[in-house]
Amino acid sequence: MSAPVIALSGITKTYEGEGDAEVHALSGIDLDIFAGEYVALMGPSGSGKSTLMHILGCLDQPTAGRYLLGGDDVSQLAEDELAQIRNERIGFVFQAFNLLARTSAQKNVELPLAYRGVGLRERAERARDALTRVGLGDRLLHKPSELSGGQKQRVAIARALVQDPQVLLADEPTGNLDSKSTRDILGLFDELHREGRTLILVTHEEEVGARAGRTIWLRDGLISDGRPLLEASV
């Protein structure tokens, strides 16, 4: 078997609490994810799934442990190095879309390429191709206010894909969508998985997590051997 695209060993994350108290968000995570896998991270509120997502996305650093991304140790990189990893090797899709409100769909998708110094003509072409890939080739010049929730999320997915990342991370990507848009977005993720993309999805919705090829349950900062009950308030 080939080496995993993501390899976590002994990952912990501790936050300072009130007084001398400490909050142990992650208490020793060992996890391998291989290229082309579609993985869902699930668990009740406070289980550590969002903290783990932030570490996987190089948005935060672990307190201890080792994180290899494509064989490179990214556990303790400086912030500017983490920013470069995020821009070049990880694609993000968020619940709130995180689009620039006064900017067209095409310009939103071009943004990560602009940060990388890609020329105007190339980034415009790549953005158009990415939007066409997600079914929005006829919405290139529309601003977010002129798009439905599902279309906004498609723009966000195109923006994540335009850099051809090693890993696509989706954090509650259907949380703001109606049932039809949810089905459409999940169908698009299925297509990306069939194309060989590595997908990691954080969700509290069982029917969404069930679409993944592997489900990883977290509880109290650890990977749970059994399937934990989801809290009604999540």
Rank of each mutant, 00 (worst) to 15 (best):
E37G: 14
L56S: 10
A170V: 12
L136V: 11
P144Q: 05
P112M: 11
N98H: 11
V93C: 13
G71V: 12
M1L: 08
A114W: 09
R133P: 02
Q151M: 10
G70F: 05
G91L: 08
G226Q: 15
G19H: 15
K49P: 10
G213C: 09
R102S: 15
H24N: 07
D225M: 07
V109P: 00
A210L: 03
G150K: 01
D164R: 15
S104G: 07
I90Y: 05
L230V: 11
G65D: 13
L230F: 09
N108I: 05
A156R: 03
V162S: 04
R183L: 14
A21R: 13
R139N: 11
R219F: 02
L82I: 10
G150P: 01
R194S: 15
R128I: 04
M42G: 00
E191G: 12
I55Y: 07
I90C: 10
T203A: 10
H24E: 12
Q95H: 05
D30I: 15
I223R: 02
R159S: 03
V109D: 05
L111P: 02
I223G: 01
G221F: 12
L59W: 06
R102H: 06
P62F: 03
A21K: 14
L52T: 06
K107W: 00
A127N: 01
D225Y: 07
R116I: 06
R66Y: 12
L192A: 07
V109R: 05
Q106C: 02
A25V: 14
G43D: 01
G221S: 06
D220W: 07
R121Y: 01
G175Q: 00
A232F: 04
L113E: 03
R116A: 14
R227I: 10
L68T: 09
L100N: 14
E125Y: 00
F189P: 00
E88V: 13
Q163I: 15
A124S: 10
D72E: 14
P144N: 06
